[in-house]
Write a protein that binds this DNA or RNA. Structure first.
Length: 573
DNA sequence: GCCGTTTTCGGCCCGACTGTTTTCAGTCG
């Protein structure tokens, strides 16, 4: 994906400029560009072609030209030239925790160390002894950093990090003197992957709290241990956890600061400066240094003249401008979901019966669910033949006669076959309350094939919703290469909803694709795709993604009460 | 390198921890 390539290149350029001790604001411009490329709502090449790239804030004349150059030639001269001066190995060294630009430069220019391997060998052989600023601890830290880097590859899925963060919060909550604990950082923004876990604590006894944290049994290594801030690496996952103690009357400012995103924060600070204030993690201060806000996040946003911005959309994607106009969307919440309408039973690859799934959903407060087992071509999942689907429909009808409060809809997650046809005869599908069409095979088809395939499925008029539309699995499989403009336009034409699949490794559609789909007027269904009653709890992940995609209650069909939801399914769209 | 109802030049966000420093630089978030 060209956006990721550009992000890496800009990040490399920023790194080398930093090693060269260049103008820090020029470096920041490149860093920001790297972030912007990652968050772009569409392919940079497409946005270049249709003129939208020119409008992107933070991409000025120079950066625009460089992006253009890369898209047309596959290279960027400034990047190539800088790599001539400082080879890739130096950038790898810079990526080691504890090694910054100054150290990398010194090691390379004075000692010719241009790879992590050489650095490791020099550290072990004692060759680094005697270099100014290098004593035993520094050298030991470099070796630890190299080992750590090897063990940590990339980011962690939200579904991994969030439960761990909540578990640590629970543990630390038992420590004497603790008044409140909050997750901050990208985990609070509910980004689909997170780099680390940030926790803020208000405590009457910070010292013991910090001691308790670094002694947690799940901690493998303590990186730092101070009176107000400590960092450690967890066993097994090698996730980094940062804990900070803040004063009660600074909690709001600290939450805002440590929740980020970085670009959102910088904008907030700029607004503060324009008003003659100073904003830091302790509060908002007037020109006399008097604190005028900080206890709650609401106060901080309010005194800056902004509407409160929900954490999930603090990505500097226009939310600050809208908050200034008090025009933010009212984001959907978990409590708005009335029914979970994509789940499996023992009939295909689930592990519970219709009744068990239904009663579990009822306990969660839902008014309705839909049973949507797989179709027959998905042999590995024991997909249903028409005869077995017939039996399942009867089983659902029988459950609905038991007098249970919850209503069960009959449905199917029918495979969209390689040619775009559906894996079940249309007569059967027509009898069902809800049909989700999904792709489970032929992921590597060409862009034209995949796009045409999805559109043909929608043209049948039998599909209510496209399941896990992009097909991506976080960290395992990229989204299909489809023409999403064409797919979403077809979905709009045929009034087909897009699923937001809450399964933690899917989270599909993604936040940026949701924004794009919504801009075409599409509706959504947030579902869990549960194969077990426990998995119904994943709904909060899907809702988080929807919030990151700026969705409101009315954008999501399964927020409607039963009568209206079934009305929508019957064609009242 | 970006950006602009005060500016096309001169601004651009802020603090904690570590290690080695006897007063601070480097790194990180």
């Amino acid at each position: 994906m060209v956006n990721e390539e550009l992000s890496h290149i800009f990040s490399d350029v920023a790194d080398i400029l930093e090693i060269k001790n260049e103008n820090p604001f020029r470096i920041r411009a490149y860093r920001r560009a790297a972030q912007i490329m990652e968050d772009l709502p569409d392919d940079a090449g497409v946005m270049l072609a249709d003129g939208r790239l020119k409008q992107v804030p933070g991409i000025g004349k120079d950066l625009y030209t460089r992006i253009e150059e890369y898209i047309h030639t596959g290279r960027m001269a400034v990047h190539d030239e800088l790599l001539q001066e400082f080879p890739q190995g130096v950038l790898d060294i810079l990526a080691i925790p504890g090694v910054g630009p100054k150290t990398a430069k010194l090691l390379f220019e004075t000692y010719g160390i241009d790879s992590v391997e050489k650095l490791g060998a020099s550290a072990e052989s004692g060759a680094l002894q005697g270099i100014k600023g290098f004593k035993e601890k520094t050298i030991a830290n470099i070796l630890k950093g190299i080992a750590l880097k090897k063990s940590i590859q990339g980011r962690f899925p939200l579904g991994t990090a969030l439960p761990i963060g909540e578990m640590i919060i629970q543990e630390l909550g038992k420590v004497r003197g603790v008044r409140s604990l909050e997750l901050a950082g990208s985990i609070r923004r509910r980004k689909e992957t997170v780099g680390d876990i940030d926790i803020l604590v208000v405590s009457d006894e910070p010292g013991p709290l910090m001691d308790a944290f670094v002694r947690l049994k799940d901690i493998e290594r303590v990186l730092s241990h101070g009176p107000t801030r400590s960092s450690a690496i967890l066993k097994n996952t090698h996730l980094q956890v940062d804990v900070r103690v803040v004063e009660k009357d600074s909690l709001g400012a600290a939450l805002a600061y440590f929740t980020g995103s970085k670009t959102h924060n910088i904008k907030l600070r700029e607004i503060a400066v324009k008003k003659g204030y100073k904003l830091n993690e302790y509060g908002v201060f007037d020109m006399n240094g008097r604190k005028i806000a900080g206890a709650t996040e609401e106060d901080v946003y309010d005194i800056l003249g902004l509407q409160f911005v929900p954490p999930e959309i603090r990505e500097d994607q226009g939310e600050i401008e809208m908050a200034l106009e008090r025009n933010l969307p009212r984001l959907i919440g978990l409590a708005d979901i009335r029914g979970d309408v994509h789940m499996h039973t023992v009939a295909s690859d689930g592990n519970s019966t219709v009744g068990q799934m239904a009663l579990s959903a009822q306990a969660l407060g839902y008014a309705y669910i839909a049973i949507t087992d797989h179709s027959q071509s998905l042999g590995v999942a024991h997909g249903l033949t028409p005869q077995r689907l017939e039996l399942e429909i009867r089983e659902i009808e029988a459950f609905n006669r038991t007098g249970a409060r919850i209503k069960v809809l009959s449905g199917m997650e029918v495979d969209i076959l390689a040619d775009g046809s559906l894996d079940m005869d249309s007569g059967m599908l027509g009898r069902l309350d809800i049909v989700i069409g999904s792709i489970h095979s032929g992921f590597r088809q060409s862009k034209e094939q995949i796009t045409g395939r999805m559109i043909r499925a929608m043209e049948t008029g039998l599909v209510d919703c496209i399941g896990h539309p992009s097909g991506r699995l976080i960290g395992e499989r990229d989204a299909y290469d489809a023409d999403w403009d064409a797919v979403f336009s077809a979905a709009q034409k045929y009034r087909v909803a897009m699923e937001i699949n809450s399964y933690p490794l899917r989270l599909d559609l993604t936040d940026t694709m949701i924004k794009k789909a919504r801009s075409k007027g599409l509706k959504f269904m947030i579902t869990t795709d549960s194969h077990d009653p426990k998995q119904m709890r994943y709904m909060n992940y899907g809702v988080s993604v929807a919030r990151r995609g700026w969705l409101e209650k009315d954008d999501v069909v399964n927020t409607q009460e039963f009568k209206h939801f079934t009305g929508w399914l019957k064609g009242d769209r």
